[in-house]
Design a protein around this nucleic acid. Structure first.
Length: 493
RNA sequence: GCCCCCAUCGUCUAGUGGCCCAGGACGAAGCCCUCUCAAGGCUUAAACCGGGAUUCGAAUUCCCGUGGGGGCACCA
């Protein structure tokens, strides 16, 4: 397949957190660019100054980097088609709005928001579709130009044809035909001189030579407007790819604030910024997100580079997808297991130190093989490995009592275990396990009863990595001391 | 209300007229392995929204319903 290099872009508004939907849009744009040897661009669409949130742009940048979606051009790194922040491109839009007015594709509108509101109310009362009533559309150009020159506040509206229909082609859905009478004369340049999305995005995509516009399906409604704007300029259209939306985990309806709260309660999140702290790794998140809307028949565990190899926009699906956090857990765990020991160790360390534990790097490296396949999220390392770094463990006394036995019988196990283990010069698993098994044999006790006690005594918990391997890492002295401690607890019961 | 989009196991999906009594993955259930918990191996249950039409033949094409989603701003 010979595909020309694609220039794609991710163009979010800095109005809130970078979420899963945005991450997926960015990912597909990224994959397409990398697959074809093109460029992936970050553009910040901050033309609605009222909604711009401080710090949101940085969060987007950080999120993209964390996910590994590095862009070739963007507001923080520049590029030959900059600036990449729309508020810094004011003149470009004003210039293009003027072109539209001069060519008869747009006109100044002097209607006040109040009047517009009133018109809309009346239309709704009459059960008509709310739409601009065209008052300023019929003004004579000279008259309008005079009023503009006088400094009268105005917007610029795009003139939609009243008759015929607009055919817009979406790569995933085919031709989308809309009767032009359904369309509205939308504002493309606001009173404050800044453009609305419709103008800004079309101008930028053209100026930045974007070949494929990958965006959310919320733009499908204004899609006809957009192609009309592009055509009014006489520009070549990009290939349009409208992605599906994400549905709430139940599959019923779109994501809400409430769902977001539920996700957090469940130790998951829709926001990229939260994922790291929850123990998710970018490899897992990316793999998971990629598969919501991209049909991969088999072998769906992929690194981002494998995704680049396999990606094609033809295999994207247009139907909405429900968020499924169980799958995130699965992909996260799977990718954790794929990490090298050194890599995993480095990623785990912050989670231990976050708990106030002092981490011995040599010990950390040793416990990785023991806990790796037990981790769903990185922070699970605390549950499976904190005891390696603690001075003492404090088992729940009841847990020391072996299943089906009483305190006295458990005390016997404890004393005998101590006797056996203390007689060994080392308790690496190869030397410690055989005599303990022999003891199980001759005592008539079950493996679970004896090993269970030992597990609780030496790790402080009922669930742990393999017992003898763990004891070996804990070390002879510490183990004996912990067992002795268990003997004392049992004696008091 | 009007317009647009979507529709395969519970979920994500493969499937582009015969290879499909529909394949994979998550989840579920069972078995094996096993010092706990995992991981791993094997197995099972589980779907073409409904109705018409086209065709020798439809999950795949068309129409009508139904359901879900999105849009109808000087927000993106």
């Amino acid at each position: 397949m010979t595909t020309k290099p694609a220039r794609t872009r991710f163009a979010p508004s800095p109005t809130g957190h970078l979420h899963l939907g945005g991450a997926r849009t960015a990912l597909y744009a990224y994959l397409l660019a990398r697959k074809t040897g093109g460029q992936f661009i970050l553009r910040i669409e901050d033309t609605d100054m009222k909604r711009t949130v401080a710090g949101a742009e940085q969060e987007i940048i950080d999120g993209l980097h964390w996910l590994g979606l590095n862009y070739d051009e963007g507001p923080d790194i520049g590029g030959k088609y900059g600036p990449y922040r729309q508020t810094e491109r004011r003149e470009i839009y004003a210039h293009h709005a003027k072109i539209l007015v001069d060519s008869g594709h747009a006109y100044p509108c002097f209607c006040t928001p109040e009047r517009l509101d009133k018109v809309r109310q009346e239309q709704m009362q009459r059960k008509e579709n709310p739409h601009y009533d065209g008052t300023c559309r019929i003004l004579s150009p000279d008259d309008a130009a005079r009023r503009v020159a006088n400094g009268e506040p105005h917007t610029i509206r795009f003139k939609m044809p009243y008759e015929g229909s607009t055919v817009a082609h979406d790569h995933l859905r085919g031709d989308i035909v809309t009767e032009n009478k359904q369309l509205n004369d939308q504002v493309v340049l606001k009173t404050d001189g800044l453009p609305t999305y419709h103008l800004a995005a079309m101008v930028d995509d053209h100026e930045m030579q974007i070949t494929h516009v990958v965006r959310g399906s919320e733009w499908l409604g204004t899609f006809p407007l957009h192609v009309n704007i592009v055509r009014a300029f006489g520009w070549e259209e990009p290939i349009w790819v409208h992605l599906s939306v994400f549905l709430k985990p139940s599959g019923k309806g779109k994501l809400s604030k409430r769902d977001s709260a539920d996700a957090i309660k469940d130790d998951h999140s829709f926001f990229i910024k939260d994922l790291d702290g929850l123990g998710f790794i970018p490899e897992g998140v990316i793999n998971w997100v990629a598969l919501m809307g991209w049909g991969v028949a088999e072998d769906d565990v992929m690194t981002i580079n494998q995704m680049v190899e396999r990606f094609t926009i033809d295999s994207l699906t247009p139907s909405p997808a429900a968020i499924n956090f169980q799958r995130l857990d699965h992909f996260n765990a799977t990718h954790i297991r794929l990490l090298t020991t050194e890599d995993l160790a480095a990623r785990l360390k912050p989670y231990f130190t976050r708990e106030g534990l002092v981490v011995d790097d040599a010990v950390l490296l040793k416990i990785i093989p023991l806990i790796r396949e037990r981790l769903t999220t990185l922070d699970d390392c605390i549950a499976f490995g904190a005891f390696f770094f603690q001075k003492n463990v404090t088992p729940t006394p009841e847990d020391l009592i072996a299943k089906g036995l009483d305190a006295k019988q458990s005390l016997d196990i404890a004393k005998k275990s101590y006797e056996i283990l203390s007689s060994l010069s080392s308790i690496d698993h190869a030397t410690a396990e055989p005599p303990m098994r022999a003891y199980v044999e001759e005592s008539g006790l079950s493996v679970n009863q004896v090993f269970g006690f030992l597990r609780v005594a030496s790790t402080g918990q009922k669930v742990s990595p393999p017992l003898f391997e763990s004891m070996e890492i804990i070390g002879r002295e510490k183990c004996l001391q912990r067992i002795k401690n268990a003997v004392e607890i049992l004696e008091k019961m």
